[in-house]
């Protein structure tokens, strides 16, 4: 982490392209933090990322590292293919909740279960953002979305899936943490979690997973500032913010 007295420069691993995300979107924040991590670990030139289908589908325009597309939900399998072919490269997937926890749940769980030494970054904002704010597997009970217009009814629509908890039942993952982009503290914590995840891979330790509770002001239908409150209060109540797996060992709450 840079010391406050050294100022702050835009991360070198970000391209000059203006990101297409809405004002206050968590994707922009995590992109920035991820770029900072690539800079600090000096791994940009040996990193290959996998972009999802969803709001972050254009991630390859924003990072100065190699990035591949993946079919919706398949990022963990694509990352597996890349990492197995090039074991000395740093491989990450960057996925939203629909991509990772709905259509790609199988690929997500099995990559973790094999302990693929990749880094999976999971942006949980409780909605399908790109397609217009539909219900996601992580949508909160009662939350109104385009496809749960009267609120998510657990009786017929299920309850929000807690991915960290689910993956933590597996034996192979090395590092699992959930953080919340709920303000300045959340930005610092998210950066730290990403740094730990990539350090895990750099040191050849195994599978790392970071879930970021992330604001989507557009589909939360509130201001960016109020979105942070939704993340910190409503979301964090459903999705406990903590480390679940550290150095391959489950961490109890």
């Amino acid at each position: 982490m840079k010391t406050p007295t050294s100022g702050y420069q835009r991360p070198a691993s970000l391209t000059d392209a203006a990101m297409h995300y809405c004002a206050g979107c968590g994707h922009s924040s995590v992109h920035k933090l991820l770029a900072e991590v690539l800079d600090e670990l000096e791994i940009r030139e040996r990193t290959v990322g996998v972009a999802p289908v969803g709001c972050a589908v254009f991630a390859y325009f924003y990072f100065k590292c190699d990035i591949s597309e993946a079919a919706h939900g398949r990022a963990a399998a694509v990352a597996t293919g890349i990492k197995r072919a090039l074991p000395d490269r740093i491989v990450f997937s960057y996925q939203g909740d629909g991509d990772l926890a709905a259509i790609g749940l199988t690929e997500t769980v099995h990559a973790a279960n094999r302990g693929e030494p990749i880094t999976v970054i999971f942006i949980n904002n409780t909605v399908y953002g790109m397609t217009g704010g539909q219900m996601a597997p992580t949508t909160l009970a009662g939350q109104i979305t385009a496809t749960s217009p009267t609120g998510r009814n657990p009786a017929t629509m299920g309850c929000p899936i807690r991915m960290c908890e689910l993956l933590n039942t597996l034996e192979q993952p090395y590092y699992i943490e959930r953080v919340a982009l709920d303000g300045h503290g959340g930005m610092v914590a998210t950066k730290k979690a990403l740094l730990t995840a990539f350090q895990t891979q750099v040191s050849g330790k195994g599978y790392s997973f970071v879930e970021v509770l992330s604001p989507c002001p557009t589909h939360f239908r509130c201001s960016p500032q109020d979105s942070l409150k939704f993340v910190g209060q409503k979301m964090a109540a459903q999705f406990p913010v903590r480390i679940f797996r550290k150095e391959g060992v489950p961490v109890h709450a």
Partner: peptide, 20 residues
Amino acid sequence: CLGCIKCARMCPEAAIEILN
């Protein structure tokens, strides 16, 4: 400005730089 860089950290777009 004290150079605490909180604003720069917070900015999603990396639009703020704090220069010495």
